[in-house]
Design a binder for these strands. Structure first.
Lengths: 206, 206
DNA sequence: ATAGATTTGTGAATCATTTCACAAAGTCTC
DNA sequence: GAGACTTTGTGAAATGATTCACAAATCTAT
């Protein structure tokens, strides 16, 4: 498959969200212009984004809302369950476990690991927190799709190495470090400090 | 000032973090190549990024670590305190309040607001949670630099409108919606669902 | 001092993304 | 069903971001 820009994939996710809104409102068809308006972009951008994957619209009419939503779910790979482990049972991890959007989209947390003896053994939303020392044996045989790294910066790389060795191909990294991983492992970073500093920059340079 | 790409600003933040690491290790000078290696980019990229703001290096030698760090702090506007309010006292909000990096970089949480009577009145890290109905009177006269939106999606836009009216020029938005704000207000989105779906896409299309 | 090795700063070239603009296909009205 | 109107899909053009490549500046060693 042709290389699709990251920005395009992000917009597809947005479009899907908007389509679901429209679906709830009982709207049957939508034009690229309406989608663009909702998402703060242009109609040409919407059509170009979709055109990478096929042609889903009807000229003169627009897109059938449920159909396009279905196609986008397919493209984004949302038609199945993903098995997720959480590395780090701190504040952010705790917030994530209870985040409903997680479950709703098919991302199921099947394991939580930490080093803190005070946390190990506790039940978190029906999942027991395990000792991270037993990571390898704990998930033996199970296939894990995504690992969420919510640890201090200084152990993030070491843990990334361990989960890569276990065959995990996708990492959502909250630790404020730049992870080094093989090319076939996808990493997305959520870096709060970076966002704040970008705001600081915006406030300073106006 | 010339328009600087968002990606450039993000990289500057990264460089600053690396420079601080080097400073801790007592390294006095660093080449664009060393910085690039640490950040997973190229030396030309580093030099180009910096060149938008001046020329800070010495040919044949590299960059003086503390000096460049200082310049970057200046460029990013990190030389001062920012007054931050938190809208929404949920799980994520709670995690943010205790996040040390926040304080360390000069972002001070001066107000927390929620609708839940069970939360109003509680002390969070020394800051009292206030009724969001009193937002306008609560911050009267105080200047607020940044608002962090950690609310359900359905009230996010309404709250954004209210804080924009109060003169806030920067918003960090955790709600999974696309906010509509005037051009002179900077918005950064942190959208967990989007990141997960980008990973889902990456896992699907390989 | 000189020669050779480094490393910056930056135009030019390349590569990537977005926007334009319009033919083709369809809808809607009367 | 004819004509006016809408809206898609997509090459081509424009804009934006990254990489190349090299002169100029400085350092190091002798």
């Amino acid at each position: 498959m042709r290389k699709i820009a990251d920005s395009t994939v992000r917009r597809l996710s947005l479009y899907l969200r908007f389509l679901e809104e429209f679906e709830d409102q009982g709207i049957a068809t939508v034009s690229s212009d309406a989608l663009a308006l909702r998402g703060g972009t242009t109609s040409a951008q919407v059509r170009k984004d979709l055109s990478f994957f096929g042609s889903f619209g009807k000229r003169g009419l627009g897109y059938a809302v449920p159909e396009l939503a279905g196609r986008l779910r397919e493209i984004l790979g949302l038609g199945r369950q993903y098995r997720v482990i959480l590395l780090g049972a701190g504040k952010i991890g705790s917030a994530l476990v209870q985040y409903r959007g997680f479950q709703k989209r098919g991302f199921e947390i099947v394991g939580i690991f930490d080093v803190d003896p005070a946390k190990i053994g506790k039940q978190w939303n029906g999942v027991e927190v395990s000792d991270i020392a037993g990571l390898e044996s704990g998930i033996r045989g199970q296939s894990i799709d995504i690992a969420v790294l919510v640890t201090p910066a200084d152990v993030a790389q070491e843990l990334a190495d361990r989960i890569v060795k276990l065959g995990v191909k996708a990492i959502l990294n909250f630790a404020p470090v730049q992870l080094a991983v093989p090319d076939d492992v996808a990493v997305k970073n959520v870096n709060l400090a970076l966002e704040l500093e970008a705001l600081s920059y915006a406030l300073t340079n106006r």
